[in-house]
Design a protein around this nucleic acid. Structure first.
Lengths: 332, 332
DNA sequence: CTGGTTAAAGTTAACGTTAAAGTAAAGAGG
DNA sequence: CCTCTTTACTTTAACGTTAACTTTAACCAG
């Protein structure tokens, strides 16, 4: 069993309060006494019991982060952004993985609430009515990231995926692609629908026939699935093909399929991803992609949340869109 | 402020204890009363304060996990293994990232200790004398993974990287490579030294001249660095080159360099990675690698730790080596 | 030497929950 | 009808820490 302040106090024949005050450098305590306490605490291998402290102080100095899948390099980079801000402001992070499952996400939110985190940063998996109702039941400040919903009146930080799609498809068309395929997933998310609209808008602005835009819905975000769907759906007829893929990781699977179909990148097939994860410049061919400001998104969300925590009276709702940029590499 | 049992009790005009017992289905409480309490709790949006409960129960039902870098797909897969076991046994996970920095690792251990996790699973960054001393000060059960040290008398689960290196280099030599390069990092780790010995052993067994084995030490585990080092160190003289790279992710950087040097894989350069992360089959060319039992490592460590927690009297020390396997793909 | 200030402790109660022991009323057995 | 058990709840105390208040003794100006 871990050592407590009480045990230190008994050993030194002082009160528990003296120990508590000494350990946090309270001016009530004389230098001599403080040193004695510190020395004994070190000898006895004392560490505070954060849970007891939190209970007494009625705050945890911790924020909860809920991601669909931490193992995606994409979320890992957002997390770095959050972490760097939290570290400076002495906040701890409690991370929960929803595994892309709305039910697990609710459970994660439940768990974090029970641990009494001071606030939440959530990258939601889904946003149906029920989920929104659940969110509104939260009594602590929270911020949604990587998600946009007009229906939700809460702080959120997102990118305009529709605009990203527009950029991508415009780029593909300008590169001479005559058939454009958009491989997407999460069909129920507003962002997916916005992406589709972005693709269509690009076709309209460049006055290309809509029939050359192929929208391919992948039921799951899975490497093998994107690989198989590409192999199945792609038909090369001599007309240059443009591929816009939901994200960079899935694009790796699609590239594989293109190679196995013996099509050349970027001559016969141009391909563009989304996110700009770290390995994209090293892939063969290096992947053209839409740069997603991941670290910035993490930092902004943490800053905003901490602001909310330290200014509970500020009730304004802030929706921030971060900007996207096309990064041209070898695959287009 | 969150609702407490006290507030529920007041509303129902019963004692706090009745509420507490009712909420956990204690047989002392009548069905009627339990339903009333449950209903009111739901209405008032009550959630337990886990910290208070942990304090009272003197255990957290939580294990701490310390990884050098969660964003590596490698650790993400180990984590999945840990998670699946913990979920079944009703343990929570508290994750900490040491960012490959021994000082941050100590801090992470400190934080987890303060949060009073019941036990720890640690993938250590470094293992100098000071670190070992620090570990021995821990008063809770812990398990080291992905690390082997003869000097440490504690539970550990690891793979024999030396044997992996032996497998790899033997494979490269049998594929006709005449010059073999081993790109490695973390030179102070016992595993790195073991790998070097494994390479040498392969050369000896196949009676190849040691001078054709090139050991390249990369000061950091970084994609750009491995890419640059490959470009700088590789000299193709017509003799087939074999590359054995510290891990799959770094191998992606090396592949990039090989392409830029206009060398063909696997004809002029064969390359083999380590870990078998998810994307390797989809890379172009698909990467030959050593399969690392990541999920199994996670599961075993969690099982072992939970065993230690539930059988505090069992003082045996268990060192488990998991087996490695070569997965041949297109790059060799 | 008095009254007031200050330094350096100590006391009390609280945070939200639970374990353990206690109690009152109802039901059972002889 | 009296004891004995059982049911259903209540009381008390504890977990480890801290906030807020109180005490004690020393110090110092007038």
């Amino acid at each position: 069993m871990p050592v407590t302040q009480k045990q230190i106090a008994q050993k030194l024949n002082v009160s528990v309060m003296t120990v508590s005050k000494a350990l946090k450098g309270h001016p009530d305590i004389s230098a001599k006494m403080r040193e004695r306490v510190e020395k004994t605490a070190a000898e006895m291998n004392y560490t505070v019991n954060v849970q007891a402290r939190n209970l007494a102080q009625k705050r945890t100095q911790t924020i909860g982060v809920v991601f669909p899948d931490i193992s995606e390099p994409f979320y890992a980079e957002i997390l770095r952004g959050i972490e760097s801000v939290c570290r400076k402001q002495y906040y701890n992070i409690l991370l929960a993985d929803s595994d892309n499952d709305p039910r697990l996400e609710e459970k994660a939110l439940q768990t974090l609430t029970e641990k009494r985190v001071d606030g939440l940063i959530i990258a939601p998996t889904e946003k149906d009515q029920e989920y929104i109702a659940w969110l509104s039941r939260l009594t602590i400040p929270y911020i949604l990231i990587n998600c946009y919903s007009a229906r939700l009146a809460c702080d959120s930080i997102y990118v305009d995926r529709g605009y990203g799609a527009f950029l991508s498809v415009t780029h593909l068309l300008k590169k001479g692609c005559q058939e454009v395929y958009f491989f997407y997933t999460f069909p129920h998310m507003e962002q997916s629908q916005a992406s589709i609209q972005g693709c269509i808008k690009a076709f309209e602005e460049l006055k290309k026939p809509r029939s050359h835009l192929h929208l391919i819905e992948c039921p799951q975000r899975d490497l093998e699935l994107f690989y198989l769907m590409t192999k199945e759906q792609l038909h090369f007829t001599g007309r240059k093909i443009g591929l816009f893929i939901w994200d960079d990781e899935m694009a790796i699977g699609c590239c594989r399929a293109i190679h196995e179909l013996h099509l050349s990148i970027p001559d016969q097939v141009a391909i563009i991803g989304f996110d700009d994860i770290k390995i994209t410049p090293y892939l063969h061919p290096a992947l053209t992609t839409i740069h997603y400001p991941k670290v910035e998104m993490g930092q902004s969300s943490a800053q905003r949340l901490i602001h909310r925590l330290t200014h509970p009276d500020d009730e304004s709702v802030q929706k921030t869109a971060l900007s996207l940029q096309l990064v041209e590499r070898e695959s287009t």
